[in-house]
Design a protein around this nucleic acid. Sequence first.
DNA 1: GTAGGGTTAG
Length: 556
Amino acid sequence: MKQNGMEPNNWTFPFLAKACTKVSNFKCSQIIHSHVMKSPFWSDVFVQTAMVDMYVKCNQLDDAYNLFVRMSMRDVASWNAILHGFAQSGFLDRVSHLLHCMRFSGIQPDSVTVMGLTRAVLHTKSLKLVKSLHSFAIQIGIDVDVLLANTWIAAYAKCGDLGLAEVVFNEIDIFTRTVVSWNSMIAGCANFANFFGAVNYYKCMLHEGFRPDLSTPLLVYFHHVCNRRHYFKCGDVDSARFLFDSMSDRTCVSWTVMISGYAEKGDMNEALTLFTAMEAAGDIPDLVTMLSLISGCGQIGALELGKWIDNYSISNGLKDNLIICNAFIDMYAKCGCINDARDLFYAIPVRSLVSWTTMIAGCALNGEFTEALNLFSQMVELGLKPNHITFLAALQACSHGDLLGRRGKLKEALEFIHLMPINPDAGIWGALLGACKVHCNVEIGEYVSHRLFELGPQVAVPYAEMANIYASKGRWDGVAAMRTMMKSNKVRKSPGQSLVQVKGKTHIFTVEHRDHPEGRLIYMMLDSLNLHLKKARLQLSSEADMNCSEATLFSS
DNA sequence: GTAGGGTTAG
């Protein structure tokens, strides 16, 4: 443009910024920022709002906020841009504070504002909050357009009131409804496992003349079957595939539904085939497409494919996206390449809580326990607040690294869990139960397993672990009790599987399943590894004994 | 005349 002797006007930069938001690329955002700063439009409220939005979309909330507070003039769009930024990240306090400031400075909220507010309360799953927002909007006389109504449909469905979602849906004029309204209603039904409702809405939608392209029919099936994959067999990817093949028009989402279905099943070959077909069809993969491919590679240890996707991401500028980077850290760690994971982690200019947590978990997984715990304290020192997943990762590092749980300091571990500022989830209790098993501790094991039974009475693992603990102490009454509980709760244990991919081929192993073509060799290798481990353990414990006696010597 | 902030599904 400049080479052609043309000068950008005040709309050029908002367009550039918007293009940047689509790819969510922080390098691009920096380049655009430097150009805008030099331009005569720098102080234009439109330009600055577009920049705020760009930073929000590029996961640079701090930059967005810094710019926002420096703006000399703000209109409702500027407030909405920053409000959505905080809403998306779930900062409810910040959002309500912003709303106050906004009204105080004389700017009236509009339907976009209310949408942001709704989004902010969504993750609390609080029906009460959604309701109060709804009445707030009506009270201040907001013009409820179809976009806001769609948000409310999804919000009510997510917060557990399908009836209210339906009310909002019915209040939208038939001619105003969009495909999003229908999709939201269908997804709402599917979330309630209301298959008939979903199909019914789908039929009505067709009847009203909406074209059955997009992802709607897939939503009906896939939601029902695969979002509940913990309860249903995932073989139904095939029925989704049947629908997919019969679709005339596919969107990025429909491709991604299928790709992620295969990736989660561990069938990376099929996932990759579809990915190639998607590109050939001219549909551009987005963030979710890439994320499902990357996490699929991590799950089955498909390092070669993972590296290929890494190169692909670099050449398509996706590697500058923080979420993608985090996914790659996870992938490399799960494939055992902790060095690659580490390099990537340190190459990220602005690391998020997820980056830290992923790296900590990756270290724990790869036996780098000290590093994991160091990272944890570094993170806390930087002022980042760990969430339950971070705690779990750190706890796993402890348990693997013979700290607390594995050292037999089960009581201390339990106290630590009770002191945590967050509610312990199944992962955390599971880690402790594993430690109880190692130390054959019935008393704490019983307490922990009951927490796990409360959280998920259908999960087989804690019953089995507790039964093992009882068995190790000869408590056959306890073993029998576990069996009875499993029966009465209708728990069925699916055998654990271990997957590994070598040269593009996936190998699956189950316990005592020795019919792999190279089974003999594999088990010989395992036996020799076991022997090495035993020797190393013996050496360690004799060293520990010596350290102990030294310690007693010095303390007395 | 228009252009900056906005909805669902994966």
